[in-house]
Design a binder for these strands. Structure first.
Length: 459
RNA sequence: GGUGGAGUGGCUGAGCGGCCCAAAGCAACAGCCUGCAAAGCUGUCAACCCACGGGUUCAAAUCCCGUCUCCACCUCCA
């Protein structure tokens, strides 16, 4: 069975075949760095991180571009009196920090909009030449895409122009309320640093043109996958598609849209004031638990946050980590993708069914625990290998660490266990419990089995 | 008004024509293990036929029609 992905343009599951065999190119809309990240941003980035990991695990070389929109109305507004560039960098650092803590892979390219103004100008010039864009009638540096000139407009979201509500304050030299800005003329109240010289005058780029230009710059006229949040489908992605295809590019072969994070059934967003901060999350559980939770619904399903979400995810994750800890103290197993069970592969190939994949992990954990208790070494090894490989594919390896301790420490622990054993033999349980507490303080968890006491280190 | 999507056990959440008397996790209960715990294992708990009403089919949670409720998008949004 091969990978199938839901293409939201075709509105159906399609067998995924890369344009260039063995190589996958993907573009994912990254954040507009206007305010600190929330759960929704994290989910979106994570979805494509897992896709990237699965594609490479299954033998593809992946080029992934995730942009940073560092110039935008909101960036300028939220910067207040500060230099907006400094502000944007600061916010970007918060995103980078959260991404790193979630253990996201670095994208191959992480372009900033402000670094690609020339690419955008070139693309817009081409659109004007082809009759799909025009400079504002009022003579300003505003440049708009001419939606009326592009009959395919609306093809991504299956909408017709006459049903669209369009920009309410249509002016600024637009021919139609549906036309969207490619470049926005410099406004006197905005800093000069936020304006670039273009053939039409001082201006800054509109949001949509950025992604078209950067995708083309790094991936060419056609590429495999374009991803982003469901809320970007319209207008952002619709407009990207219109611009790029009007300019003659075939653009993305697959469009992927991840569903949103909701809270009490409603979209999490700044305007509703229902965002959950990173602080709130980390109080409830580790970053591993946050990643686990964000993975726990298929990417096209809404994921509803509640107070117990992260706590429950932590418990589920601890079960897996606990298994690895209790069983791998004296074993070292290399991760190998050949160890991945077929059921896991099938789940992942089925439009990234991560919850189904997690179910396979838990099933293997139970089998492994049973093998461990029954001292079935061969079976245990197999389960450990499988669980580790699957955890690696899902990017959850960072949630546990190989126990690192010195020989000396090991000897100290084993001495204490021996003393505890002696105390137990003497029925001095108070002393035995004291030693257990002492070991716990050292970070050691005991596991009393029938004839032997095992221990694991949580360092 | 237009365009997409959703309604599955106490909670989260898979399944999308037969392998479903519906995965997995969390929560809860009991047993095993233990000096007692923890962890683990086993079992139970649980979905009154998977929102409701019709229909198609030898067969439906899964397809079709209708109804109700909810969500997202329609030029800020991951």
């Amino acid at each position: 069975m091969a990978l199938e992905l839901f293409d939201s343009k075709a509105q159906e599951l399609r067998a995924f075949t890369p344009i260039t065999p063995g190589h996958v190119s993907m573009y994912v809309c990254g954040p507009t760095v206007q305010s600190a990240p929330h759960l929704g941003h994290l989910r979106s980035a994570l979805v494509y991180d897992i896709l990237q990991r699965w594609l490479s695990a299954s033998g593809h070389e992946v080029t992934m571009v995730r942009n940073v929109t560092d110039i935008d109305d909101k960036v300028l507004v939220n910067a207040g009196n500060r230099d907006w560039r400094e502000f944007a960098k600061e916010v970007e650092a918060k995103f980078d920090d959260a991404y790193a803590k979630l253990s996201l892979r670095e994208p191959t390219h992480k372009p900033h909009a402000t670094e690609h103004i020339d690419d955008m100008v070139a693309l817009v010039q081409k659109l004007i030449k082809l009759g799909h864009a025009y400079q504002a009638a009022d003579g300003s540096a505003n440049v708009f895409f001419d939606t009326a000139s592009w009959p395919r407009y609306g093809e991504l979201t299956n909408q017709k122009l006459e049903n669209m509500e369009g920009e309410t304050d249509a002016s600024h030299g637009r021919k139609s309320p549906n036309d969207f800005a490619l470049f926005k003329a410099h406004k006197p109240e905005e800093p000069e640093t936020a304006a670039w010289k273009t053939p039409w005058g001082l201006a800054r780029p509109g949001w949509h043109i950025e992604c078209s230009a950067m995708a083309k710059h790094f991936l060419g006229e056609s590429f495999d996958i374009h991803g982003g949040g469901l809320d970007l489908r319209f207008p952002h992605h619709e407009n990207e598609l219109a611009q790029s295809s009007a300019a003659g590019d075939s653009f993305a072969n697959f469009w992927l849209h991840n569903a949103l994070v909701t809270i009490n059934g409603n979209k999490m967003s700044k305007s509703l004031g229902n965002g959950v901060s990173v602080e709130q999350l980390t109080e409830a559980g580790s970053w591993g638990a946050i990643r686990y939770w964000l993975s726990s619904a298929q990417y096209r399903s809404n994921l509803d946050y509640s107070e117990s979400s992260i706590r429950d995810a932590q418990a589920a994750l601890d079960r897996i980590v606990g298994f690895l800890k209790r069983t791998t103290n004296t074993r070292r197993v290399e991760v190998d993708f050949d160890f991945i069970p077929l059921e896991f592969k099938e789940a992942m190939d089925s439009d990234l069914n991560v919850p189904g994949a997690l179910a396979v992990i838990h099933e293997r954990v139970r089998a492994g625990n049973t093998a461990f208790d029954g001292k079935d070494e061969a079976k245990l090894s197999e389960c450990v290998e499988q669980v580790k490989a699957m955890m690696a594919v899902l990017g959850l390896t960072f949630a546990y660490q190989e126990p690192l301790y010195t020989e000396e420490f090991s000897k100290q622990v084993e001495d204490l266990i021996q003393k505890r054993h002696e105390a137990k033999m003497a029925k001095d349980f108070a002393r035995a419990d004291e030693i257990r507490v002492e070991l716990e303080e050292l970070g050691v968890t005991l596991n009393d089995m029938k004839d032997i006491t095992m221990w694991s280190f949580n360092g």
